[in-house]
Design a protein around this nucleic acid. Sequence first.
RNA 1: GCGGGUGUGGCGGAAUGGCAGACGCGCAUGCCUUAGGAGCAUGUGUCCUAUGGACGUGGAGGUUCAAGUCCUCUCACCCGCACCA
Length: 820
Amino acid sequence: MKAYEPQRIESKWQEKWQSDGLYAVSEDDSRPKRYILEMFPYPSGDLHMGYVRNYSIGDVIARYYSMRGFNVLHPIGWDAFGLPAENAAIKNNVHPKDWTYENIARQQVQMARLGLSYDWDRTVITCSPDYYRWGQWLFLKFYEKGLVYRDESGVNWCPSCQTVLANEQVLGDGECWRCSTHVEQRRLAQWYFKITDYAQELLDDLEELDGWPDRVKTMQKNWIGKSHGAEVKFTLADTTKTITVFTTRPDTLFGATFFLLAPEHPLVDELVAGTNYREEVERVRQQVAGRTMVERAAGELEKEGAFTGKFAVNPVNGEKIPIWVSDYVLMEYGTGAVMAVPAHDQRDFEFARKYNIPIRPVIQPEGAPLDGAEMTEAFTGTGDMASSGVFDGQNSATSIAAVTEWLAASGKGESAINFRLRDWLISRQRYWGNPIPMIYCDICGIVPVPESDLPVVLPDDVDLNAEGGSLANHEEFSNVICPECGVPATRETDTMDTFTCSSWYFARYCSPSDDDLPVNRAAGDYWMPVDQYIGGIEHAILHLLYARFFTKVMRDLGLLECGEPFKNLLTQGMVKLEGSAMSKSRGNIVSPDEIIAKYGADTARLFILFAAPPEKDLEWSHEGAEGIFRFLSRVWRLTQTIIDSPDLGPHGGGQEKELTQLMHAAIKKVTADVERFNFNTAISAIMELVNAAYRYLDNVSESERDTTLLKQVAEVTVTLIAPFAPHMAEELWADLGHPASVHRHSWPEYDPKLAAVDQVTLVMQVNGKVRDRISVERGLPREAVEKLALRTDNVKRFLEDKEIVKVIIVPDKLVNIVVR
RNA sequence: GCGGGUGUGGCGGAAUGGCAGACGCGCAUGCCUUAGGAGCAUGUGUCCUAUGGACGUGGAGGUUCAAGUCCUCUCACCCGCACCA
């Protein structure tokens, strides 16, 4: 018998697929399309098991839909700009470009070795000028649309990465998403994308993403953070100046006993200038500025505040309330000013207690009324309004709307909405990125690089360690002539956040070498949106939110029809070893190369798909991989045995009938499981079919075998396993006498009649407890079933001296006799 | 604090409200073999007075003829956000 030699057959088929162009696709209106996409890798070294999992999942889906007759686009590329390349380059004294392209070459070889069905003609590499040129072009279009602006404000600065970060890139504990260094605050002039213009749409359209996990949608929803409320205009006492606040609780307006400004609020200096209060306010400001994000995140911070000596006038009752400065008011949210209602807001409550400010309840719960002097915490529940003038007695169910209407009618405020989402800071003070195509001219100001001058090419000959930045020190790059007035000017030397590169690459795959536009309209409209996107949960907010934003802007620019890039999203779990994520520093790495060398790619793929459902974390097991290799060897031997047997034709009988039934049932189960991405159970169904075939060989002597059926079983097994173990399937398919690729063959169909069993096991229960099981013909009528049950010995024993109350019959499944 | 998720044998994991533990790993016994890190067969939740029975899906209640699955409460762990007015 021909031996199973995975390494030999795998490289053979990989070469053949490539030379036959098996996975090259083009637009074809005669077939339905499927765009299957895995998040592209960062070329930071060898592919690790996490990538193998990601790509194995995508490959099964792509190959399955291809066998189902779909026109499948399944591309890959590299997210090639970014800090790791630059850091590695500095460390190893090589150029980031060389380092990047070497890694890409290595990863490409590894991908080929895994037998992934990519259309290699569509490869996109983001650090290539053909690609980043269109990133710059999009930047200019965004700018024309008013979606790009430059602003000086407080930004997150990572001292280790020596660059600013977007809000999304600062983790919950105030650490840099990339290097975990504590992020500092700085004031810098930076470029922003106005993602907040799309906040509402980004929120609303989550509703239509039925194919996304709720978890991811919830995370995005919370990140966008929409709040309904009102803006209320307070006046600065003894002036005509107004200060607007945002509140979600206008119904508590009458309970405002003080007023707060953020320490950075521009009005603060003006209020305390030349007064005795200035010193104390400054002290609080200093103290607050010294706090790190970590301290702020650590939870209960003692609230610090200082009185400004000035008062604000509450528009609803003309009351003068003191204006304080405190760190718990954020300049970035709302208006940076807050009306404080200590009776009904826990933070205000704590502050008021600390600084002895009166607490006045204006919402009274049913039963015991609140007394401000005795309250121990804020009351945030519902009740009737009190001490609130004309609103007294109004129930809180209607009071918010009533007060808001009244504010609007009297010109003292209006209903308002606030988002937590901030604009996207895209400037990075690093070399290895896409240059921002802007020029600073002393005469004309900020001038965009003319489209005809694109791309702004990132120069190769830079000093990576240059003080103040590699590009800023590159005179040829930074010194330019103003395209408008012709005088010497300076180029922007910051580069764009790498997330800009990954925000539209999926569109580029549709027409990867288009010279006129980022994406050819017809190709984009044919392939987009991505039907199935697969990647790690860590991108739930960052990449997936940015990509949605870009897609919407591209749609509004007329570049694409669709407004959502990813119709369905699968977030795969991590690959772990000994309970923790594989990492070099922990030393618990299983290298894909090692596994491929030992068992072949088919085993690596199959194991990773079998060991856990795709969304769950997966524990790597050497024994488990070994077991999968054994299973593949069993498939191999089974098929070769069948191939080697003399042809005896059909041979009907009970065993044949059973094997036929199991074969059709297996097709049914594998199909359903692949459709819903239950690859682990799909594989176990194939195992069951293989086990059944072996059982048949065991039970039936060689001369009695139905070789027609056996060949059919072998072919079905091979086609079912083809998406999972493509090389073995291809080799066995050829051995079974088929000249064309199994991946071009159609997915097997099952006959529902044949998939159903004739004999079913009826479970006999008494009071819900199983007492016996008997095998009967399918479709036995109720009366017969009941009679049968009552006659069964094991059932009878439990009926003695009992009264039968009721008999429940689930056809072909069970009988439950209820007795008393 | 808010939001989301998970909890089933020694392990990974299966179960449209209808036989809990499919499939695989591991382990045990046996067969075959010069040999086995090969192959094959059988067994493998716990307990008991064992051809039978009781118990069993983090815990406590409930609904139901029937609950891993539905409801209420609760515990543990994981993830996201977090002084967002």
